[in-house]
Design a protein around this nucleic acid. Structure first.
Lengths: 233, 233
DNA sequence: CCAAAAGTGTTCGTACTACACCCATGC
DNA sequence: GCATGGGTGTAGTACGAACACTTTTGG
C-alpha cells in the first residue's frame, strides 16, 4: 500500500470583500480570519478551512467551510494552489488546497464576527499561522492580476450597478485611481456588460445608468476547466 | 479524527516536448503517456505519476516520477491544478495534484520509450484513463496561454538559440505562422534575451546570430509564489 | 548570379491615455 | 445659478500587423 495515508489533506480559503479602510476611508480589500483554538499555532489567526472529506469535492468543502465559519456564500470561488511543502505544519505532513472567493459587501456585513472570527485589511495582516501569509499574498496577487483581464469585478457587486461603482471596485483592488471617461468606454464596449433602462435617482447630479452583468459570459476564463462544472470527466 | 485518511493523494504530470508531426512534418507538441499495468483502467494510457509521499514535497514527487517513468529531467515544472471531484476514480476517492513540464527535444529523444511508455501528439490523444483527457486539455490551454505572456518558450531550447528557432517554438505551440520581422523585434526588445557574438555557420544563407536566455528574468511570473523556492514560510 | 534565410524600414490601423468639455440633477 | 458627478469628444502616443526591401552566406 502507498504511504499516502500519512498525508493530511486540508482545504483553506481566502475570502475577499471590499470595505472602507479604517483610516483613509477609501474602499479596500478585506479578508476574514479565524483564531485557532488548538495547537499548533493556538491563539493565532489563520485562514478559514478544515480537512478534506472523502464524500465531498474539494470545491464543495471550500464553500461549506466558508459558510460555516463566516456565514458567507461567495459569488465567486476559484482554486488557488495546492501547497505541498514538507515543513508547512509542525504537527505533521499537511497538503493544503487553497481557494479564493469574492463576496459582496452586503454578504460580508451579514458575516459573523466575534472573538474567533475577525475581518482584516488584506494588506495589513499580522503574522499568521502556518504559511498562510504566503497564501494570502499569492491570492491577492491573483486577484489583482485577474481583475485586469477577467470580469471578476462584477462578483463584488449586486445584480445591477453603475459604471462608477464598477470603477470603484477596480480602484480599490488595484489601489490607484482610474480615468472615469476611459474606464467607461473600456467596459461599455465589452460584451460582458448589458445596459438597462433604469437609472439611479436621488443623487445631487445627473442620474447614473444601471448596468447588468451578462451571464452568457464566464466571469473568468478558465479554459477547458469550465467543462468540469457541466460534464465531469 | 478526520476522514482525510480515506482520501488518496496522487501526483500526475503532463510533459511537453516538441517533435515533428508524423504526417505534416511540422513541429508540434507531444506528450509521453504510460500504459496502466493494473486496475482500474488496466491497459489504457494515462499520465505519468504516482502517490504522494509523506517525506517528499509535491513538486519533488512530480519531478521524480517524471524521471522514473520517462527518464526525462524537465527544464520547467509548474503546478497545474488539484483535481478533487468525487467520481474521478472508480477505485475510491483520489485527489490528484497535476503538474506540467517542458523538456528540450534532446531530452525527449533520450527518453525511454517501450511497450508501456509512448509519446503521442498532444492534440490527437486516444481516450485516457480517469479524467486525464481533461487534465491534458487544461495543461495545453495553460501552455498556449502562458507562452504569449511569459518566457517559457526558452525552456524548449538549449543554452543558445537563434531568433528563428525561438519563433518556431511559438509557431509549433500556437499552431500558426508568425511574421519573422515582427517576431524578431518583439523578442529582441525584451530584457529576457541577451545577444551573443556567436553565429550559426554552415547554412546556405546569412549566418544567424545566437542569443542566450537572461537568467536574471524568471521564466514565468508566478507572483509571490517565487518566494517558496528561496524562503518557504 | 541565384536561392534562401537573416535582418531593417515603413506604413497603417487599433487601442490606450490624458484632458477638455457638455449634460442633468439637487439644492 | 452652482456644485457634483455622469457622460462625450478629441488629440497624442504606443504597439502590433502587414509587407517591401536590403544583407550575407552557400552553391
Amino acid at each position: 500500500m502507498s504511504s499516502a495515508d500519512a498525508i493530511q489533506l486540508a482545504v483553506s480559503t481566502v475570502i475577499f470583500a471590499l470595505r472602507p479602510h479604517p483610516e483613509s476611508g477609501r474602499s479596500t480589500v478585506w479578508i476574514p480570519l479565524v483564531r485557532r483554538t488548538r495547537a499548533p499555532f493556538e491563539g493565532e489567526w489563520a485562514l478559514p478551512g478544515g480537512w478534506a472529506e472523502a464524500d465531498e469535492s474539494l470545491s464543495d468543502t471550500a464553500a461549506r467551510k466558508l459558510l460555516e465559519t463566516t456565514a458567507v456564500a461567495p459569488t465567486y470561488l476559484e482554486q488557488l494552489y495546492a501547497f505541498g511543502e514538507l515543513d508547512r505544519s509542525p504537527s505533521g505532513r499537511v497538503v493544503s488546497v487553497a481557494y479564493w472567493a469574492l463576496v459582496r459587501p452586503d454578504q460580508a456585513d451579514a458575516a459573523t464576527e466575534g472573538e474567533n472570527v475577525r475581518w482584516f485589511v488584506a494588506d495589513e495582516l499580522p503574522a499568521l499561522a502556518f504559511d498562510h501569509n504566503v497564501i494570502v499574498d499569492y491570492a491577492l496577487w491573483r486577484l489583482r492580476t485577474k481583475l485586469e483581464y477577467s470580469r471578476i469585478a462584477h462578483a463584488f457587486l449586486g445584480e445591477t450597478f453603475t459604471i462608477t461603482e464598477l470603477r470603484q471596485v477596480h480602484e480599490a483592488v488595484r489601489q490607484r485611481p482610474l480615468d472615469p471617461a476611459n474606464f467607461r468606454r473600456q467596459v461599455e464596449s465589452s460584451p460582458a456588460l448589458v445596459r438597462t433602462d433604469e437609472h439611479v435617482v436621488g443623487a445631487a447630479h445627473r442620474p447614473a445608468r444601471l448596468y447588468r452583468y451578462n451571464t452568457d459570459v464566464e466571469l473568468a476564463d478558465v479554459g477547458p476547466l469550465a467543462r468540469l462544472r457541466k460534464d465531469p470527466r
